[in-house]
Computed example of a mutant assay.
Amino acid sequence: MSLVFAHRGSAGTHPENTMEAFKEGERVGADGIELDVQLSKDGEVVVIHDETVDRTTNGKGFIKDLTLKEIRKLDAGNKYKKFLKKTRIPTLREVFEWMMTNEMICNIELKNGVIPYPRLEEKVIELINEFSFQNRTIISSFNHYSIVHCYRLDPDIEIAPLYSNGLFMPWVYAQSIHAESIHPNIKVAPDALIIDSMKAGVAVRPYTINNEAVMKRLFTINCSAIITDFPEKAIKIRESMSI
């Protein structure tokens, strides 16, 4: 059965990368969540996609220039009028504490392609080990040097290269860096490539699958997982197909 990962939580219906979005993913029955991490000025692992807080909050500035205390003051739900109460940017620790109450998988994307955060990999892996989530986490990044570093730090944690340009036989590349899976942009992941990769023992979790026809196509070939902004829609489609 294809798994459903809630992209930045249920980002299509709730403020992305917030506890509200992750809890919605759990409520609708998603198998996992996908989130992004960066480091605050005081070295805390915070869950946010952009290098700045400008797009997703009522604040301005780079994450690397703000302390956790300053980040906590921001409202990450200000663009959603139905969310009347303040929605905070969570830390990875907060997400893990919540994950103690369920069995969801967590795909952590390291956002260190633009800003090279010192020790981001070490801090994330320390948290994973503290919570004993080695079997419930996947570390992905467009920065492949970073995920190889993660593998060397702890070979028990699954790594997955993210990519958006066509790769020839990407499962061979994945195996060469000890990655058990690949996370391609769906535009560069035709069905044949997904099937060949899975046959080679490398899982495929394409992003970001919001189109109903594409969901059905991927469920039909039993793609390892899909990453979607609309997990509720994806789960209803999967159930209707009895896959």
Rank of each mutant, 00 (worst) to 15 (best):
M1Y: 11
S2T: 12
V4A: 05
A6R: 11
R8N: 00
G9L: 08
S10H: 10
P15S: 06
P15N: 10
A21Q: 06
F22K: 04
E26N: 11
V28M: 08
G32E: 11
I33A: 00
E34H: 08
L35C: 09
D36P: 02
V37P: 03
L39Q: 07
S40Q: 13
K41H: 07
K41S: 08
D42R: 06
D42Y: 09
D42N: 15
G43V: 03
G43Q: 15
V46K: 04
V47C: 07
I48H: 03
T52W: 10
V53W: 03
T56L: 07
G59F: 06
F62L: 15
D65K: 11
L66F: 03
K69P: 00
K69H: 08
K73L: 12
L74K: 03
D75Y: 00
Y80A: 01
I89Q: 00
E94R: 02
V95L: 13
T101N: 15
E103V: 01
M104V: 03
N107W: 05
E109D: 10
R119T: 14
L120G: 02
E121L: 13
E126W: 06
E126N: 14
N129F: 01
N129W: 01
F131E: 01
F133Q: 01
I139W: 09
I139F: 06
V148N: 02
V148C: 11
Y151M: 06
Y151D: 07
D154Y: 04
P155Y: 04
L167D: 00
W171T: 01
Y173M: 15
A174G: 06
Q175I: 10
S181H: 00
P184N: 11
L193C: 08
M198H: 05
K199C: 02
A200R: 05
A200I: 10
G201D: 10
V204F: 06
P206L: 05
T208L: 13
I209V: 15
N211G: 00
V214L: 14
V214I: 15
R217G: 12
R217L: 11
F219G: 10
N222R: 14
C223S: 09
C223D: 01
I226Q: 03
I226A: 06
I227H: 02
I227W: 04
I227G: 03
F230N: 15
P231F: 10
A234D: 06
K236G: 02
S242R: 14
